[in-house]
Design a protein around this nucleic acid. Sequence first.
DNA 1: GACCAGGCACATC
DNA 2: GATGTGCATGGT
Length: 215
Amino acid sequence: MLLNIYERLFALYGPQHWWPGDSPFEVMVGAILTQSAAWQNVEKAIRNLKTAGTLSPQALSQLPVEEIARLIYPSGYYNAKARKLKALVEWLGEACGDDIGKLSGIETDELRRQLLAVHGVGPETADSILLYALGKPVFVIDAYTRRIMFRLGLVGEKTSYEKLQKLFMDNLQPDVQSFNEYHALLVRLGKTVCRKQPLCRECPLFDICPSNEAR
DNA sequence: GACCAGGCACATC
DNA sequence: GATGTGCATGGT
């Protein structure tokens, strides 16, 4: 079923080229800034950081939190996120001395534990960083994924993050590229359709929705 | 003007 | 462990 969904979405939308970002660090910053925010606004914030020459762990470590907040203003929750970025770069300093390449030497489970201990990094942000910045085969669950899986009738509405993630990872080969593409495709689908309940006829997944026989 | 967007921390029960 | 609330801009 999950493989079927993936193939269908890929055939429909093609490769999504995620995550947009020029470096692992930019991906990490984007993962925090995109929390409950439109990516369009995140792009503006990242552009501001780049223009100011501050898109590096070293620069952000030096910069006052108020100044970071000013630069990331368009992404919303700017005070909260500025503090989160500070916590992220503080961790990077401790974990790898700002040399992100060295993070590869840490086991994925341990890395995830460390990330989750960073202020502002929850399950989705941690897994986005692991998959998209560090190339670890971890499936990312987000609001779109949860909604689509619920509409398909495959999980309950309040299924936990961990359970949803396990569902994907137990039923798919652990592969960075396909995990990357699958998550991006689910977001793409979630953005375009399936915003209303129940799963509408226009949804590309309508005919494989197990629960639509009742309708 | 309401509603939503690629969440999370924190308080409270 | 479940549930509620603050954080905030910008597009539809």
